[in-house]
Design a protein around this nucleic acid. Structure first.
Lengths: 157, 157
DNA sequence: CCAAATCCTTAATCTAGATTAATGCTATTC
DNA sequence: GAATAGCATTAATCTAGATTAAGGATTTGG
């Protein structure tokens, strides 16, 4: 049984291009994964609060795509990527696939305001813990666009 | 061992809102999955040529999101969604997750022309079998936009 | 073989969201 | 408690891609 590791806020656990990546099970705090694109812009792939696992999923024998860092002081279990591991049970993987499928479909078919409303409904507690600009990044828009979206929405009611 | 089933081109195997969905393993031919959005527009989630499996991944006890139909006369194995099944082995699920992760990151951070080039490089054979407008739908743009993209690209070389 | 779909392309216009820039607000640090 | 840095907001401008519309090409079906 691996030990809990304490990660201070701001610490980067893994970087794009690294080879031997881990799986992190968050016990307390908040991690996130993201990429930095060709123009130097951050795009947040996911948030991992208490109870979630987070990792880079890339084909075997390739470098990883994602940065992972801590948005709060965090305690994690650091696990090996092991095909046999009970940490990677089938039901959990299917759940992850369902979330990703929904994410792809939303990005393709749903306007930004609705994606924001879906996010707030699905992860209400994260809104209190994550700066708006990171929510925008997760939604695939700029902070300015999110700000405008919200004010237009408030005006209409 | 389940039998091969023949699916004629155009046949719809499953519709949004249905409950008991299957997993399809394609032996020959081509299936696709897609949604129809609020405005009645199709958005293709994935193509499944020979050797691929295709299914709707939705949380247990919820209705499914995707349509699945046949783009060519197709032969498939129709499988139950069974957590114990060797059809759902861990490695295959991880591969699917890696593909979806890449798809999300591309949709968020990569312009349409590069997504098209990535598609053509990754699935060159599909280009010959799928109408352009469906490639556009998979990429998250309109057929008109893809047409313009291609002509601009050709002009620049 | 002809008619009717289906598909691709081009062009004009429109729009959601990006970019750039400036201002004020809150936190944190020294 | 001033100074600095990070964050949110607003506004002006710009652009990738959507929408609408039309024409021509190619495929399909009877």
């Amino acid at each position: 049984m691996p030990d809990l590791t304490s990660i201070p806020k701001g610490k980067i656990l893994q970087r794009t291009g690294e080879r031997y990546t881990k799986v992190y099970r968050v016990k307390k705090g908040l991690l996130r994964s993201y990429i930095i694109d060709a123009k130097g812009k951050e795009h947040i792939f996911m948030f991992a609060p208490e109870g979630w696992i987070i990792a880079d999923s890339h084909p075997p024998d390739t470098a990883c795509d994602l940065f992972i860092d801590a948005l709060e002081d965090t305690e994690v279990l650091i696990l090996e990527k092991d095909l046999q591991s009970p940490n990677l049970n089938t039901a959990a993987l299917l759940r992850r696939i369902a979330v990703l499928q929904e994410r792809v479909l939303m990005l393709m078919s749903t306007p930004a305001l609705e994606r924001y409303q879906h996010f707030t409904a699905t992860y209400p507690n994260l809104l209190q813990r994550v700066p708006q600009r990171m929510v925008a990044s997760y939604l695939g828009i700029t902070p300015e666009a999110l700000s405008k979206l919200k004010s237009e929405w408030h005006r209409k009611r």
